[in-house]
Simulated assay, not measured.
Amino acid sequence: MKKVLMVCLGNICRSPLAEGILQSKVDANTVSVDSAGTAAYHVGNKPDERSIAVAKKYGLNIKNQRARKFVVKDFDEFDIIYAMDENNYQNILMLARNEEDEQKVKMILNESNPNKNLSVPDPYYGGNQGFENVYKMLDEACNFITKKI
């Protein structure tokens, strides 16, 4: 089984959406998807209501997810670790123990926009349109990920 981890800052906006989107596109018997945050601000909380709403709009239910913090053990548990932005990417790499850990970490939008190192903007302080935009970016990236796995 291939195991994929989606990581953003607080694990309540971007990475829960990425988790839900990718889960909806893969065979749960062959691919496992989870999400985490590099900060512990929201541990145990459900996703932001705006993330839940935009996911629901597209037929996905992410309201049962709970935020958790990224930990070093995640390098052992997951095959691929997708960071939502450059800060998350660097924070994950700081915890890497070796080159094997580092090789697992990727910027998610490089799947749909190769080698551009684009960031998924954090919609937390924006309006609903920000969540819509993030959903569309992640949906496109997850289409590419699905073809690769």
Rank of each mutant, 00 (worst) to 15 (best):
M1E: 12
K3N: 10
M6V: 01
V7I: 11
V7M: 07
C8A: 09
L9I: 13
S15N: 10
S15V: 08
P16A: 09
L17D: 10
L17P: 02
L17Y: 08
A18M: 03
E19G: 00
G20C: 10
G20P: 01
L22C: 00
Q23E: 15
S24N: 12
S24V: 04
V26D: 00
D27I: 08
N29M: 05
T30F: 10
T30D: 11
S32F: 13
D34P: 02
D34T: 01
D34W: 06
A36G: 06
G37D: 00
A40W: 10
Y41N: 08
Y41C: 03
V43A: 09
V43T: 05
V43E: 09
G44S: 08
N45D: 14
K46V: 06
D48N: 07
D48K: 03
R50L: 10
R50V: 07
S51D: 05
I52N: 02
I52L: 07
A53I: 11
V54H: 03
K56N: 11
K57I: 09
Y58C: 03
G59S: 00
G59T: 09
L60W: 11
N61G: 01
N61H: 03
N61E: 04
K63Y: 02
K63S: 13
N64M: 02
N64H: 15
Q65M: 14
Q65G: 11
Q65A: 00
R66N: 05
A67Y: 07
A67Q: 02
F70D: 12
F75I: 10
F75E: 07
E77A: 14
E77R: 09
E77Q: 14
Y82I: 05
Y82V: 05
M84S: 00
D85V: 07
E86T: 14
N88I: 06
N88S: 04
Y89W: 09
Q90C: 04
I92L: 11
L93N: 13
L93P: 00
L95W: 07
L95A: 13
A96N: 10
R97G: 15
R97A: 05
N98Q: 09
E99S: 13
E99Q: 15
E99D: 15
E100K: 11
D101E: 07
E102N: 08
E102R: 14
E102V: 04
E102I: 08
E102H: 08
Q103D: 14
Q103Y: 12
K104V: 01
K106D: 07
I108Y: 02
N110L: 03
E111K: 13
S112W: 10
K116E: 15
N117S: 15
V120A: 07
V120F: 09
P123Q: 05
P123D: 09
Y124R: 11
Y124T: 01
G126T: 06
N128S: 15
Q129E: 15
G130D: 13
N133W: 04
V134E: 03
Y135A: 13
M137C: 01
L138S: 06
D139E: 14
C142W: 04
I145V: 15
I145N: 01
I145H: 05
T146Q: 12
T146W: 01
I149C: 14
I149Q: 12
